[in-house]
Amino acid sequence: MGDDPVGLLDVLLGLAVVGVAGTALTARRRMGAVVSFLVLGVLLAVLWSRLGAPDVALAEAAIGTGVTGALFVDAVTRGPPETRGAPAARPAGPVPWQGVRAALPGGLAAVLLGAGLGTAFAGAVLAGTAPGGLTGQVLGRMDAAGVEHPVSAVLLNFRSYDTLLEVVVLFVAVLSVTATLGEERPRHAPPSARAATLVWFCRVLAPVLVLVAAWVLLAGSDRPGGAFQSGAVLAGALILMDTAGLGPGPDHGRLLRAALVVGPAAFLVVAAGGLVVEGEWLALDPAWAGGVIVALETLLALSIGVALTVVFLALGRGRVSPP
């Protein structure tokens, strides 16, 4: 792909991404910005697929658009009504010169910054420093990896230290979020009674989503998928159940705490196990690397799903029995 001249699809996709990002960043009311952000996420998922990164596209659709979108929408609908209501009156006239003049310094700065960065990036590509990257090295070691999909092998075997720290970051985020829990806040608009349709839909769909999550998890061994995307689908199922009133409540605190901890704890056990057996932190013997990775991914997916759900619930719910 590196030397082909850019095609129409790529030009349109790139322009669409920049345009929607501009709309998301300059919208006058919050809900418009958030909706544009959701559209941006979908376009980015298409973009990742176009660049040959289906794992990233899955993660962007599930985590970047799904969970982040749910968080943003929930934050906006719980926010003060005046921030998301009708925008302020525009100045009269066909072209709002006041608005344009106010936006000029920012726009100029954005153009300069973008041009500078673009020249720097394009120069790096044209200079062609090490175009091979690490592909050769990774593919050369795949038989010792335990899984057949290169990205999963990198995530959970070759660079598992990064993944361990990433899981810890998520864990710390959950801790900082639950440290700020207060009493339950009602929404600004009185909620309608829980529609029977929604409850039925959630009852029917939640098992399907759990099945999809399990499939994405197990597919990560030899094709795009993996623990993070699976965890995000699981979080989606739990958030959906929460909107129907069927989700985790205050008396599920102990269960949630256990589910949150089991992922990072299992990862630490595997890491220490590597230290004991192989003499190296996080080392995996190729003989049982496959089984260990699958088991670890399962527990990780559970923890990630619960962690994302707890962050969502903490936005407005009351006590979720903080860990």
Binding site: G2, G52, V56, P131
Partner: peptide, 20 residues
Amino acid sequence: AARTDPPDPVPHALVLTGIV
């Protein structure tokens, strides 16, 4: 990462981490 074919898996893993 797309400079090679098949695409380089290490930046993809980094991007996944970044999204989370």
